[in-house]
Amino acid sequence: MNSDSHDLIQRHMAGLLTNDEAVALQTRLKADTDLRRLYLHYMNLDVALEAQAGVRDRGIDLLRSAPMAENKRIGRWLSWRPLTAAAAGIAFGMFCSSLVFGFVGQHGVKKTLLAVHEPSFEDAQMSLAKGFPVTASLWAGDVSKVVPAENGVTPKDGHHMLRLETTAYGRSVLFPRLYQIIALPPSGSELREIEVSASFASADPSSSPYYTVRAYAVNEAPERLGPDWFARHWFIERDEFIASAETGFENPPGNAKWQSIGLRMQVPGNARCLVVFLGVKNQANSQASKPHYLDAVEVSSVEASSIP
């Protein structure tokens, strides 16, 4: 293969081709099996180098984060692919609500509730944007609606709750999700603890949905996250994502009661906002015809009190 072919492919990789060159590359690739093979070799090299660089980078971050080993996840190396992290047993833990709040009254610990928009979904007119929230203090996500008691489920708090649909537009929603960005007040501490809890219930006691609470601390201002933030962060690490934690609970079949689950995470003091993610994974083989419900979301900052 001549050097022109190598050059053309590599400039394509770097985004340096003119429109005419891009058309020429496409025409040649269609006609030339060997050129396609070379092209695919280069693409494999590109991905492999990115992976090698990631391994090196994670190694460096692992060393940096070593003193913080008690954290659920701090540093980019652990933010790499939550599924992988979950498999390694890094991020998961479950606290029932009594345990979440059990330590709050500990001597010398001060708990401050952080402002969550509509934590109990009491505003029946609350609109819910699709996708990732465009700004702080808004609920956004998949198809859902504020409802009163229905389907044998009564709200956990107040008179309303949020119904997470398991079907939308005639199709199953296997993983209904909800997000809110919460601005974090300035902290004088290097580290502070944040608690996130929420209650879930299912209208279908024969199913065994997996309830998930995740939180991501970010050192960017809320308005800079952008609508694609979560999609990017699901599997791709980024610098501003500085701590995260996840907890989950597989609701056993037959359990129609509210399940309160929560997490506690250590967050660097420079974190400017917290992205809270609440979701329900349906079993792929479930009928997923009945909705799930969410209520009583609470986010708190826990700091050591100055009182001895």
């Binding site: 180098l49 090698q52 990631g54 980024r238």
Partner: peptide, 9 residues
Amino acid sequence: LVLTAYTKG
């Protein structure tokens, strides 16, 4: 250098 060039960010 090559790994730095390929490091995200």
